[in-house]
Every structure is written in structure tokens, then in C-alpha cells.
Lab assay of single mutants.
Amino acid sequence: WIARINAAVRAYGLNYSTFINGLKKAGIELDRKILADMAVRDPQAFEQVVNKVKEALQV
């Protein structure tokens, strides 16, 4: 799951650890299995999560 998430978030200019930190700051409580599945099956929803994380990180 970690490898999938890392590959997906790198397309948005983040790395895995920064993304996970941003999830916590944004108050998003999705587990890694769901995030990895979302990255593959629903990229639009995953992009929305990434955008919320970037807002929380102020990137």
C-alpha cells in the first residue's frame, strides 16, 4: 500500500511521509489500504484528497 500511495502522490509533487503528515494536519482519517485503492480506482477523488493535504501543508 505504501508503494502505491508513494507513486501516486509523487505525481502531485509530494512524497509519502509528507502526504501522511498532511493527512493528519488536514484531519483526514482514511487508512492506507483505502488510500491505495482510491489512487488506482478513483483518481479524481484521490486528487481531491491530495489537494486538501496540500492546503493543510500550505504547499
Rank of each mutant, 00 (worst) to 15 (best):
W1C: 14
W1K: 03
W1N: 15
W1Q: 14
I2R: 11
I2Y: 11
A3Q: 13
A3S: 10
A3V: 06
R4Q: 15
R4Y: 07
R4H: 13
R4T: 15
R4F: 13
A7Q: 15
A7R: 09
A8Q: 04
A8T: 03
A8K: 05
A8C: 03
A8E: 06
V9T: 04
V9I: 12
V9N: 00
V9Q: 00
V9H: 00
V9C: 03
V9R: 00
R10M: 13
R10L: 10
R10Y: 12
R10Q: 12
A11P: 15
A11F: 06
Y12H: 07
Y12S: 03
Y12P: 00
Y12N: 04
G13M: 03
G13L: 02
G13C: 04
G13T: 01
L14R: 00
L14E: 01
L14V: 02
N15W: 05
N15K: 08
Y16H: 04
Y16N: 01
Y16W: 04
T18M: 08
F19V: 02
F19G: 00
I20E: 09
I20V: 10
I20L: 07
N21L: 08
N21E: 15
N21A: 13
N21I: 11
N21K: 12
G22P: 00
G22D: 01
G22Y: 04
L23A: 05
L23I: 11
L23V: 11
L23P: 00
L23M: 12
L23F: 05
K24P: 06
K24M: 13
K24Q: 14
K25E: 07
K25D: 09
A26R: 03
A26D: 01
A26S: 11
I28Q: 05
I28S: 03
E29H: 13
E29G: 13
E29W: 11
E29P: 10
E29K: 12
E29D: 14
E29C: 06
L30G: 11
R32L: 15
R32Y: 08
R32P: 15
R32Q: 15
R32D: 15
K33E: 15
K33C: 03
I34E: 14
L35D: 01
L35Q: 02
L35K: 01
A36T: 04
A36P: 05
A36D: 04
A36C: 04
D37T: 08
M38K: 04
M38F: 06
M38V: 06
A39G: 03
A39Y: 06
V40K: 09
R41K: 13
R41P: 01
R41T: 15
R41M: 14
D42M: 07
D42C: 05
D42V: 05
D42A: 07
P43M: 06
P43D: 05
P43V: 06
P43E: 07
A45Q: 14
F46Q: 00
F46D: 00
F46N: 00
E47L: 10
Q48T: 07
V49L: 12
V49N: 04
V49F: 06
V50S: 01
V50C: 03
V50P: 00
V50F: 02
V50R: 01
V50E: 01
N51M: 12
N51G: 12
K52A: 12
V53G: 01
V53L: 04
V53S: 10
V53R: 00
V53Q: 00
K54D: 02
K54L: 09
K54I: 13
E55C: 04
A56K: 08
A56P: 02
L57V: 10
L57D: 05
L57K: 02
Q58M: 08
Q58N: 12
Q58T: 09
V59R: 02
V59P: 15
V59W: 06
